[in-house]
């Protein structure tokens, strides 16, 4: 098992709590119609984003997905600017023009969430091509869901990356459902590692509900990619606690299944491990939690009070 330092453990716990509370808050704002439109929530999957991104250098790159809030927060995104973006406000990280589906933070190395399933594969692979041409030691982590495995560009990019030995880690977040369709009803190959074999790249699978397990695997495969070996595929088995989006009644899965994964909630489980191992005291865990609650409240307040973009913004930023 990966053993974090006290500081590391605190950061991992804090970021996972930030993501969870951020998502719970958005659900609340959606219910109150303060947040309009849709939002795909990352709650339940925190161990994946935090386990992987905390193992990267700050100047490494990621591409994200339609369920991208967790990646943006883990990539040290500013909570205020992220919350404001989701509400379409001028102070948002994309000036209110992107929204939940298009959170991007280029200064932080986040090349963007994406409204198209598998939409980030090309960007990630191209960024990796650029890094290779620059002889850079940076890498790209390309997050995508189980649904994206069945999209054409995924195969085009994996083939190209393996052929050209590009520094990209393909990170499949397998949360079992592509909207409503279970992987058993969508994927001819159930063991996703076999997909990588088709492109002659290594693959690994890990429990995505266990942040230390994710981190251990991430460190290993990030190191593999950074060493110039080319791409690899890391599958993280995980679960989203909310439905696909706000209007999803979740008829395609059982209460028992949801309960099974709720019992394996990565956040209290990790908190418990931290206390058991003496990395954090019970009081420290509570303090982190209340600091996060405060930060999320502040971000929400900031976002709600922020103005909408000016009307002139309609036509700006289209061309350079």
């Amino acid at each position: 098992m990966y053993t974090p330092s006290k500081q590391e453990a605190a950061k991992i716990l804090r970021q996972m709590m930030e993501i969870r509370q951020f998502e719970d808050k958005i659900m609340e704002l959606l219910a109150k119609n303060i947040a309009e439109g849709g939002s795909h929530l990352y709650a339940g999957m925190e161990a994946v984003a935090v386990g992987v991104i905390s193992s990267l250098n700050s100047d490494d790159y990621i591409t994200s997905t339609h369920r991208g809030h967790g990646h943006a927060i883990a990539k040290d995104g500013d909570l205020n600017a992220l919350m404001a973006e989701i509400l379409g406000k001028k102070t948002g990280v994309c000036k209110g023009k992107g929204g939940s589906l298009h959170l991007a933070d280029l200064n932080k190395g986040n090349l963007g969430a994406n409204g198209i399933v598998a939409g980030g594969l090309g960007i990630a692979t191209g960024a990796a091509l650029a890094l290779k041409m620059q002889k850079s030691s940076k890498i790209v982590v390309c997050f995508f869901g189980d649904g994206a495995l069945n999209n054409g560009i995924t195969h085009e990019c994996m083939n190209m990356a393996s052929l050209w030995k590009l520094p990209v880690l393909y990170l499949c977040e397998n949360n079992l459902y592509a909207m409503s369709v279970c992987i058993n009803r969508a994927c001819s190959v159930k063991d996703f590692r076999k997909r990588a074999a088709a492109y002659d790249m290594p693959a690994d699978i890990v429990d995505g509900m266990d942040v230390l397990a994710v981190k251990e695997a991430a460190i290993k495969w990030i190191n593999y990619v950074r060493s110039g070996n080319g791409p690899c595929l890391l599958v993280c088995n995980t679960y989203r606690y909310y439905g696909h989006s706000r209007s999803d009644p979740r008829v395609y899965r059982t209460k028992e299944e949801e309960k099974f994964y709720k019992e394996r909630d990565p956040i209290p489980n990790f908190a418990k491990i931290c206390i058991q191992n003496g990395w954090l005291t019970e009081q420290e865990v509570k303090d982190i939690e209340s600091q996060v609650t405060k930060a999320i409240e502040e971000a929400t307040d900031f976002a709600i009070k922020s103005p909408l973009p000016d009307p002139e913004e309609l036509y700006s930023d289209l061309y350079v």
Binding site: I123, A124, T125, A127, L129, A130, L131, Q134, I153, M160
Partner: peptide, 28 residues
């Protein structure tokens, strides 16, 4: 061949990777 690349027959990836490289400062 670093600057003149034959690609697989993968039009989506050709444009997509062109975009990724452009975002990092190249002029593909």
């Amino acid at each position: 061949e670093e600057r003149v690349k034959d690609t697989p027959i993968s039009e989506a990836a050709i444009v997509g990777t062109g975009l990724g490289a452009a975002l990092l400062g190249f002029r593909p």
